[in-house]
Amino acid sequence: MDNTKFDESTQKELQTFLDREQAQARLHSSIHNLTSMCWDKCITSTPGNYFARGEESCLANCVERFLDTSLFMVKVIEQQRQSIGQ
């Protein structure tokens, strides 16, 4: 590969591309973590040909409640911070 530099517009384009790919990778990494965590919480039976009753909805609920938890924690910390500040 020859090593002449990319021109400015190409560099900008590549930067945008990398930013987008990085965001996508971060998203994927959260999904991996959530799957791992929710699998441990929800899948209690020996894996069969299908999910057992309730396991599927447990997985979806697990994701939603985890995100609720994270929003809730921010709120609590914010409240505590305010009460200390007074």
Binding site: L27, I31, C42, I43, G48, N49, E56, L59
Partner: peptide, 18 residues
């Protein structure tokens, strides 16, 4: 079976999360 279920779980989590 576990492998198939895990992939399925990944897809459910991915769909719900996004």
């Amino acid at each position: 079976r576990c492998l198939q279920r895990y992939m399925e779980a990944f897809n459910i989590v991915s769909k719900t999360y996004t």
